[in-house]
Structures are given as C-alpha cells and as structure tokens.
Design a protein around this nucleic acid. Structure first.
Length: 490
RNA sequence: GGGCCAUUAGCUCAGCUGGCAGAGCACCUGACUUUUAAUCAGGGUGUCGGAGGUUCAACUCCUCCAUGGCUCACCA
C-alpha cells in the first residue's frame, strides 16, 4: 500500500484528489449503464435529418477539453468516431458546469443534448445534461504525437488502441478478414471443426513444441504445433471438406515474422489434390481481399503487389534455375549436390540429403525475390514428410507454398494417404530425431492406424492468417497484427 | 545465441568536449460565452533503465545487468 502510494506521480495524485472531491459531493465516479440513442457516427451522418431540435444521447471517452470561460468544448470519442461537445454554464447550471470543467482526458461520460454547427461548420452537441460513467486515474499519452514507444504499445495495447486510430483499424480489418474467410469456406460447404490443443504427440509440422503437464493424469502433453493430423483423421471418418481456424503454438524464435502463438487456417478436401488447393488458395485470397479492401492492388512496405488472378506457378527446381542459375534437374546424388552447395557457398549439415540442399538453395537465393504472388511447387520429399510423392518422380512431392512479398503465406499438398509409405516417412523422421533434430516429426501410431482404415486422396492447405493480415494491412511486424504479442515480463 | 542501436518528466523528445536537469504537450492556479494542436499570464512535476567503476565533478566516459528495436543465425 505504501509502495503503491509512492508509485503515484503528481498527475495521478491529482486525479485521485478529484475522485475524493466527487465522493464528497456524492457523485458516483463509476456509475451504471447508460442508454444512448445514437453512436457518434450516426449523429454525424444523420445531422441533416436530426436538425437542431432533436435530443440525442451519446456515450464515450473524453479525448480533449478546451476550457473557454463560461462556455467550454470537449471532444468525445466512441468506437464509431469522434465529435465535439459544447457546454454553456447558463444552460446547464453552475454545478454541472463545474463538473464538466473538471473532467479529465480519458473519463467516460454519458451525455444528452441537441446538435448545432459551429462557425467553422463542425457538428457539435450542445449539452443539456451529462453523467460521469467512469473516472480515469491515469493520464493518456500526448494528443499530438500519441504513443510511439513500441514496447509500451505492445505491453499496454489498451492505451495504444485508445490513442492510435490506425491500430484500431488494423484489428477491425483483421476481424473482417477472418470473417470473410469463414464466409467463403462455409459457402463452399466446408465444415468448421475444432480439434485438440493438447496433444500426446506433437505432429503436423516440423517445430519444437511447448510442453505442459496434466496433474490428474500425471502426464506431459504438447501444445499443438499444427492441427493437420487430427483434421486428416476426420477425412478418414468421412467428413469430406473440413477446416479449422485457430492457434498453433511453437517453442521457437521470435521475430518480425514469428510469434510463439499464431493463427492458421487449415482445410482438407477429399478427392482433391494440390492443384485444387492452388485454385482455392488464389480464389480465397482474391475474394477476401476484394471484400475487405475493395481492390487487388496492395502496397506492402513500398512494393506494389498485384493480387489479380493468374498467379505465377513455378517448380522449386525451375525457380532455383531462374534466380540462382543452378540446375538441379539431373542432380540425384549427394556428392554432386554438395559440390554445387560448396561452389555457391550454401551451408548444409553433415547428415544432409539432396532434397535438403535443394531446399537450402531455394531459401538462400529465391525466397526473398518472390514479391508478386508465386506458387512454388514440387518440394523435395525429404522436407515434406506428410505429402504425396509425384507419380513421375518419387523424389519430389505434390506440394506447393505460396509466397507474397518474400513471405511464406500458405503451404499445401496432396495428402499422403498410403499408410505404409507414411509409416516409413515417420521412421525416417525418428532417425533424424535420434540424430539430434528435435524438430523432426514424432511417430504417431494412431495416425498410421487411421490411415490403415483408408483415407481418401485429399488436398490439404494451411494459410498463415497473421501473415496474410500483415500483407493486407501493410504491417511490417507480426506483432502489429496480434493484439497482445508475446513479451518478456516487465 | 551473435552484432549494432536505444532507454532522460505521464507522453513526444533536446541535453555539445564531463561542470546547476531542459522544451512542447499533459497537469495545477487565474482570465476568457462558437473554440478546435484554442489563446493569454504564472507554476517544473525527475531513482537521467539498474548496479558498480574512473573523476574534484558523470545524463555524458568504462564494465556488468535488464528491457526493447533492427539485423544475422535458428526457425516455416
């Protein structure tokens, strides 16, 4: 308690003094619900119909006070907008006027009055009565520069949202994008499902999981790194089109493109393949972009990105040929691959494979050049343990990833439905695990059992929703599209 | 994890070669009945991120630590 008192700076002490004053006068600082007749946006839009006679009531937060003798102005903000209030002492009485003058920036009030236009033409509410709804005890950041300290913005997102309108816009848009995605998938008869967040085996991606503990069962559980294996079990179960939108958790590095928890959309469609997934991916992103932004020309970090349909589709091998001028078409032995890697200063592990070296070349020379939407297809089998092989070339898979602005936005493949092949792939992954790769896949016996019952051929797709939202909101960091990004404790 | 940078009032930021801690906004007092980044007059509110060290003297120089940013590595 004593420590708390010492934490209060003068501005906060002043507000607590006002709180005491209110208590003495018997005025509630935190009062009950307030029935408003309009939002600010409605009042501003409908001013011509409402005129100067109709009484309206609003609720919101005081964002500025301009004291002006016996008549004063204030700005009120609600979720829909911001407008000016006008209070005149001889109209509302000395007592209420005193209270109006003593309002602080950040206080919530409910206010009733009529409308008029000021000399400068600003639609303003002439107060007849108002009530304090919630007293603010902490000063808000400066009205002009706002809050720019990145750390404070993330730690105290509530303040960021109050004072930075474009931050609020970003998250409204985020909600619209996800809504639009659901609508698209529901329209196409995909069934939205929910699968477990706590797994006994962490599968469906190559990533280190978080571990937690169940007390009653006295066992460790992994937080899911991907919903993939559960969604495919549903294909076995007879659901032909399913999707899930939700969080994945990965115990890995944090960067402008990685947050430990992130949101993905995964969908699976029976009797389809990765070509169908490419069509869906393109159509889905085009549709929700048009619906939420009203255009397919998107600016991201100064680059003009054209999302008009007909996105480039190119194999990984061809992309490497094009951007690095290295041809892996005929390369099928490790020695030749290593030689090429050495020649081009591409690093690789001692225990590597041709496929992994090809993947390294892609990441090193191609990825960040893919500014316009590009599907990279035919991934090496070694980096695709859950994807179906290409019939004509067993070393590559029917898989693609979508890149826009150098960012990986989607990953999809024809799902491997051969239980024997899948088991062998898991065993390969297990070997890598034992060799020290703790991101290699774990063996999932139940998943193999499910495949043994028969999973229809299917296309599967995962879209990184945070990254998609980054693109559509021109955000350079994933933290700008996650309301409460992970931070170390203060 | 490595490299670079940052941390000064509630917020946004100055602070030189080591010599009394500064501005704007916010806040307080007063004036002002259509202002709007209101204006005018007065008031500086601080553990200079933390701990050591060098020095007559440290916001300033050195070391370590913390947090954050960028970047490389790792990672989809």
């Amino acid at each position: 308690m004593v420590e708390e008192e010492q934490d209060l700076n003068e501005l906060m002490l002043e507000r607590r003094r006002k709180l005491d004053e209110l208590a003495e006068k018997g005025i509630a600082a935190y009062s009950d619900k307030y029935e408003r007749s309009h939002t600010i946006e409605e009042v501003l839009n409908d001013y011509d119909e409402l005129g100067d006679e109709v009484s309206v009531s609003l609720a919101g937060r005081i964002m500025a006070v301009r004291e002006h003798g016996k008549a004063s102005f204030a700005d009120l903000a609600d979720m829909s907008g911001r407008m000016q209030l006008y209070a005149k002492q001889n109209e509302i009485g000395e007592e209420l006027y005193e209270l109006f003058i003593s309002l602080d920036i950040g206080d919530h009030i409910g206010v009733e009055g009529t409308l008029f236009k000021t000399r400068r033409g600003e639609i303003t509410l002439r107060i007849k009565d108002f009530r304090l709804l919630s007293k603010s005890l902490r000063p808000l950041p400066e009205k002009w520069h706002g809050l720019t300290d990145v750390e404070l913005r993330y730690r105290q997102r509530y303040v960021d949202l109050i004072v930075n309108p474009d931050v609020r816009e970003t998250f409204v848009l985020r909600s619209k994008i996800i809504h639009s995605m659901r609508e698209y998938l529901d329209d196409k008869d995909f069934l939205e499902v929910e699968t477990p967040l706590m797994h006994t085996i962490a599968g469906g991606a190559s990533a280190r999981p978080f571990v937690t503990h169940h007390n009653t069962l006295d066992m460790d559980l992994y937080l899911r790194i991907a919903p993939e294996l559960y969604l495919k079990r549903l294909l076995v179960g007879g659901f032909e089109k399913v999707y899930e939108i939700g969080k994945n958790l990965r115990n890995e590095g944090i960067s402008t493109k990685h947050n430990p928890e992130f949101t993905s959309m995964e969908l699976y469609q029976a009797y389809a393949d990765y070509q169908d997934m490419m069509d869906i991916t393109e159509d889905l992103i085009v549709t929700i972009t048009e619906e939420t932004l009203g255009t397919l020309q998107v600016e991201y970090e100064g680059e003009e990105i054209d999302l008009s349909p007909g996105w480039t589709r190119i194999t990984m091998i061809d992309a490497i040929k094009k951007h690095a001028n290295v041809d892996f078409t005929e390369v099928d032995d490790l020695q030749t691959a290593k030689g090429l890697a050495d020649e081009h200063h591409v690093e690789y592990e001692d225990e590597t494979t041709v496929g992994e070296i090809i993947n390294e070349f892609f990441e090193e020379f191609v990825e960040d050049k893919l500014i316009q939407p590009t599907f990279i297809t035919e991934y090496p089998i070694e980096v695709s343990p859950l994807a179906k092989r290409k019939p004509e070339n067993k070393e590559f898979t029917e898989r693609f990833e979508l890149f826009i602005a150098g960012n990986e936005l989607a990953n999809a493949f024809s799902e491997l439905n051969d239980p024997i092949d899948q088991k062998e792939r898991f065993e390969k992954q297990m070997e890598q695990r034992e060799a020290g790769d703790d991101e290699a896949h774990m063996m999932d016996q139940d998943f193999i059992r499910a495949l043994e019952y028969g999973m229809p051929p299917a296309g599967g797709l995962g879209i990184g929703i945070d990254r998609l939202i980054m693109l559509l909101t021109d955000s350079s960091s994933i933290r700008d599209v996650i309301l409460f990004p992970h931070m170390r404790p203060e």
